[in-house]
């Protein structure tokens, strides 16, 4: 099976969907002539032309809102945010218009839009460019949220997101863009809302999403090597819809849970998952659900300090040991 990067997987997904459906259009800042700020869309302008691959001005409220309007009339726009952090500039268009249009029209209007881009810290770009708004997005009924942690999922989830009739926020990660794994050629879909058990274990469930999963897998190796602890690692892949069943099954098996994510702790996805576990699997728990997030402050610029602020293999390893005490 070919080994391709997360970046190439996203490009393959968007290309296949552009070829499959004439209503799919990729828009965003620098996606066409510049070949993408992070080169996700490299070569796509040359291949598909300026009608399908569209450079927008730096005008997030305008072009995201325009995409929402175009989706209402049947296009399937894939809108790239150069950094997902810029979603805040288009907040009204996303959360008042895209999220609510179906509801407020009594189900008469759909909004099949994908809003995608990298949502992560760890690259020393400071607080304005390092937001991880998955819990903010998922807070809004009407919106779907996916956060792929690897190339295989990135492709399969992107294809599902583009075909979805509801608005999907697709949160990528610049640090993962160059990470590769085996990805089949051609058509396959990963359904939204299906978690993936990345590593089976019996002693503790390390659940999370996004790049934290890659760190959690390394932490699980350490736990095994140093303490013979068998950690199960569950990648949610999709925040809304959420695979509650897989979460509960894992926790019922291991009786302990550590939730790992790059977001800040207040109202994070982990907070929601901890609440669900407490509601529905309380009697199975041998310890409180623990969470590991970024340290609760705006993203710090200072490169060595930013490393400490974010989840790391070492922090996850320690947090897991704490949960097992």
């Amino acid at each position: 099976m070919p080994v391709i990067t997360y970046r190439e997987a996203l490009r393959a997904a968007m290309s296949e969907e552009i070829e499959r459906d004439p209503n799919v259009v990729l828009m965003g800042e620098e996606v066409a002539q510049f070949n993408g700020a992070y080169k996700i869309s490299e070569g796509m302008l040359a291949k598909y032309g300026p009608k399908r691959i569209v450079d927008t001005p730096i005008s997030e409220a305008g072009f995201i809102g325009m995409g929402v309007g175009a989706a209402m009339l049947g296009l399937r726009p894939v809108m790239e945010l150069m950094f997902f952090s810029f979603y805040s500039v288009a907040f009204d268009q996303i959360f008042n218009n895209a999220a609510n249009i179906r509801y407020m029209s009594g189900g008469l209007i759909n909004c099949p839009i994908v809003i995608r881009g990298p949502a992560n810290g760890g690259t020393n770009v400071g607080a304005t460019h390092s937001h991880t708004p998955e819990s903010i997005a998922a807070y809004h009924p009407g919106i779907k949220v996916v956060v792929p942690s690897n190339a295989y999922d990135a492709k399969g989830l992107m294809k599902s997101a583009i075909r979805d009739n509801d608005p999907v926020m697709f949160l990528e990660n610049t640090i993962l863009y160059g990470e590769a794994c085996e990805v089949p050629d051609g058509e396959y879909l990963v359904p939204l809302g299906k978690a993936s058990v990345m590593r089976e274990g019996t002693d503790i469930s390390i659940i999370g999403h996004g790049r934290s999963i890659q760190l959690a897998l390394k932490a699980a190796d350490l736990l095994k090597q140093k303490h013979n602890i068998n950690a199960e690692v569950v990648d949610l892949r999709s925040i809304r819809p959420l695979d509650v069943e897989t979460i509960l099954n894992s926790v019922k098996k291991t009786s302990r849970c550590l939730y790992v994510e790059e977001s800040k702790p207040f109202c994070s996805v982990g907070a929601m998952v901890a609440c669900l576990i407490s509601d529905q699997a309380f009697d199975y728990l041998d310890a409180p659900v623990k969470r590991l997030t970024s340290i609760d402050a705006p993203a710090i610029y200072s490169p060595p300090l930013e490393k400490l602020q974010l989840p790391s293999v070492e922090r996850i390893y320690q947090a897991a040991l704490d949960t097992l005490k």
Partner: peptide, 24 residues
């Protein structure tokens, strides 16, 4: 196509409707 509550928030949508017309 509405009927929108936020002052000016419908104008990008209207622009998008026009975009979709032209695109199609």
């Amino acid at each position: 196509w509405g009927g929108h509550g936020i002052v000016g928030g419908q104008i990008p949508l209207g622009t998008g409707l026009a975009y979709a017309l032209k695109y199609k």
